[in-house]
Design a protein around this nucleic acid. Sequence first.
DNA 1: CGAAACTTTCAATACTCTCTGAAATTAAGA
DNA 2: TCTTAATTTCAGAGAGTATTGAAAGTTTCG
Lengths: 181, 181
Amino acid sequence: MSLSSFEDSKALFVRRWGEMGGYWGINRTMAEIHALLFVSTKPICTDDVMELLQVSRGNASMNLRSLVDWGLIDRIHLRGDRKEYFVCRTDVWQMFETILKQRRRREVEPIIETIAHCREMVTGSDPIATGDDSGETATYKKRLDEMQDFLHAVGTVADLLVKVGPKRIGDISKMMMKLAG
Amino acid sequence: MSLSSFEDSKALFVRRWGEMGGYWGINRTMAEIHALLFVSTKPICTDDVMELLQVSRGNASMNLRSLVDWGLIDRIHLRGDRKEYFVCRTDVWQMFETILKQRRRREVEPIIETIAHCREMVTGSDPIATGDDSGETATYKKRLDEMQDFLHAVGTVADLLVKVGPKRIGDISKMMMKLAG
DNA sequence: CGAAACTTTCAATACTCTCTGAAATTAAGA
DNA sequence: TCTTAATTTCAGAGAGTATTGAAAGTTTCG
């Protein structure tokens, strides 16, 4: 194994992680910076990011800050150096938990709330009295309820998955396999 | 409940579903059309979509086709009518399975493959002979492996979740709760 | 076949998100 | 305090997506 294949390997990972970021609503540069820190054993500063990813200072700064805000990386200070450095929180399960929490808050909770609200709007009064076709609203209500139940179910499983963590993941698989028959 | 509150409720759901689509890398119009079909008990045609969502014929046509390609909606024909109509596959668990399958193929598999490739690039030869810092590559390898394991674990659980379906979801929660406890 | 009804395509345009780079701000050391 | 290093901000440029609308294509039926 040559030194260059080590560097090449890391570069490949960074590129791919960046590409994937796009699919997940995360901008490419942010994902690449994250990958860079994930595969780096040493802390990295803004200038390193600029050099390695060929992006502007502003871009590097903004995205590093976003990553800190998301809780995916940390700022650190090296003694005898005025610059700020950054390191990745490398525990993948913790990483997952962090992302899960944020995305759920921003992307799942609002839809759950909206469904609840939609549900209220069509709940209560007598459909016949209002001349409403009760068959139609009944179907609508059912679909909303099923979606709501589903979203809750997935949320619960995701939470538990994180709680259970990497150690017992095998146990879970086995059990679910039994249930799935 | 008035007729208008029924319509308002559906409109609210459509708007929110569209907004959320953005977060998930799905364009707003596509998500809105999907929502429209999800809350509609009757089949809907291109002109309905144009009218209800205020979009052009081209836009409606393109996005309807994408939804058919994804397997989220179906084309149908109504007797005595030349137009094509569309209906949503309303089973949310099936919907989830469909989306899961597609996104995994496009967004998870490639990163898993890349990690495997990255891993190969730094596997094998003697680090000391090549003057490589074995501590650094060892850390790198470990991180790649952890990420790989994690991605596989999540994939497995997601698959099983779909297999188990809505009926036993309660059982799963209980079991995981015990493990997590 | 030919006309009418309907659908798809795609070049041009509008829009949204990302990035740059230099100015403003903040922090550290003399 | 002043000077210098480092960081942040943000208006404008650029890149990438989504949308329109009209022309081309397809299907249905007399």
